[in-house]
Simulated scan of single mutants.
Amino acid sequence: MDNLKEWKKQQRQQLIAARESVAEDLHRQWSGAISAFLKQGLAQPQHMTIGIYWPFRGEYDPRPLAAHFLQQGATLALPEVIEKNKPLCFREWLPDMPMKAGAYGIPVPDSSPIVRLDAVIIPMVGFDPQGYRLGYGSGYYDRTLATYERQPLTIGVAFELQRLPNIHPQAHDISMHFVITEAGIFQTREHHLFPALTLQNSGSGSHQQ
Rank of each mutant, 00 (worst) to 15 (best):
R63V: 01
A67S: 13
F69H: 12
L70I: 12
Q71L: 07
G73Y: 13
A74L: 06
T75S: 12
L78F: 10
L78A: 12
P79W: 02
E80N: 02
V81L: 04
V81G: 01
V81H: 08
I82Q: 08
E83Y: 10
P87D: 08
L88M: 02
R91L: 03
R91K: 15
W93S: 03
L94G: 04
P95L: 11
P95I: 05
D96L: 09
P98N: 05
M99E: 12
K100Q: 14
K100E: 14
A101K: 14
G105P: 00
V108D: 00
P109C: 08
P109I: 07
P109N: 13
S111M: 04
S112L: 03
P113D: 10
I114D: 07
V115S: 08
R116N: 06
R116C: 01
L117R: 07
D118V: 01
A119G: 04
I122H: 00
M124V: 00
V125K: 03
G126I: 07
G126F: 14
G131W: 14
Y132F: 15
Y132H: 11
R133S: 05
L134R: 11
G137D: 06
G137L: 07
S138E: 13
G139L: 09
Y141I: 06
Y141K: 12
R143H: 10
T147A: 11
T147Q: 15
Y148A: 09
Q151F: 03
Q151P: 03
Q151K: 15
P152L: 06
L153E: 05
I155K: 07
E160C: 03
E160K: 10
E160Q: 09
E160Y: 02
L161W: 13
Q162V: 01
R163C: 10
R163V: 01
P169Q: 12
D173N: 10
D173K: 15
I174H: 06
I174C: 07
S175L: 01
M176P: 00
H177G: 10
V179C: 06
I180Y: 07
T181K: 02
T181P: 00
E182S: 06
A183F: 01
G184A: 09
L193F: 05
L193D: 01
F194K: 13
F194M: 07
A196T: 02
T198C: 02
T198F: 11
T198M: 05
L199D: 05
Q200W: 04
S204F: 14
S206R: 15
H207S: 15
